[in-house]
């Protein structure tokens, strides 16, 4: 739950208002798509939601935890226990295999699923012992999703997860995200500038100039398989 979230970056003498009074409520099990153009503030919002950054003003609460003015230690614990991240460029550790990249996270989580199970969930049961350099981009991104969900996070945050992929591969990645949301009931937030993806969401939040310009609710989520762009 966020109220009046504002984030101001000062770079040199220039002040950038990346978020400007955003009010937002997210619910368990939802699949949210955050839609906005480059510079609309969507990444900043995601960073605040994920505990990578704190708002300059406003309040941000997560299940009774106040993250507004949290210190580094609290934020780290929050990310560790509650949040799964999927990045545009996968950010896998090149020196670890798929299984080990997942295990890296499960070893520090209180209640993880076995790495193998997480990888099977994203249809990579047969590539567990491959290194990142031996996999395609789509496969790497699915490993990243497996890594993010293996700790059974309450929130899954995906920052342009298909941004570096072609359409066909992008679809397989989105399918994996959709499956996780459906099977595990994880609150999932996808950031994208690709409007087509809006149709797979429960709710679509449009951002521009650091403000929420519009919130849409889809009556039915469109299956990822049928998306096209």
């Amino acid at each position: 739950m966020g109220r009046g979230l504002t984030k101001v970056y000062t770079s040199g003498e220039v002040e950038v208002r990346a978020l400007d009074g955003v009010d937002l409520d997210l619910h368990v099990g939802e699949l949210i798509v955050l839609l906005g153009a480059s510079g609309s503030g969507k990444s900043t919002l995601l960073n605040n939601l994920g505990g990578l950054d704190v708002p300059s003003s406003g309040t941000l609460r997560y299940r009774g935890r106040d993250l507004t003015g949290a210190d580094e230690k609290t934020l780290t614990a929050f990310r560790r226990d509650a949040v799964g991240f999927v990045f545009q460029f996968y950010n896998l550790i090149p020196s670890l295999t798929a299984r080990e990249n997942v295990a890296l996270i499960t070893e520090i989580s209180p209640d993880p699923m076995p790495p193998e199970e997480a990888l099977r969930l994203v249809d990579l049961g047969d590539r567990m012992d491959h290194f990142p350099s031996q996999m395609s981009g789509g496969q790497q991104q699915r490993v990243a999703i497996a890594r993010a969900i293996a700790k059974r996070p309450e929130v899954l945050l995906c920052d342009e997860p298909t941004g570096a992929l072609d359409v066909k591969t992008g679809i397989t990645v989105l399918e994996a995200i959709e499956k996780v949301n459906r099977d595990l009931g994880t609150l999932t937030v996808i950031i994208t500038h690709n409007a087509v993806m809006a149709e797979m969401a429960d709710r679509v939040i449009h951002l521009s100039d650091g403000k929420i310009s519009k919130i849409e609710r889809n009556s039915t989520r469109r299956p990822v398989r049928s998306l096209e762009w």
């Binding site: 991240f85 550790i93 090149p94 520090i108 993010a148």
Partner: peptide, 16 residues
């Protein structure tokens, strides 16, 4: 640096 920062993002402490 990128790997290490990723670890920080996914919840590793500075010490880890």
């Amino acid at each position: 640096g990128r790997d290490l920062a990723t670890l920080r993002v996914v919840g590793f402490t500075n010490r880890e």
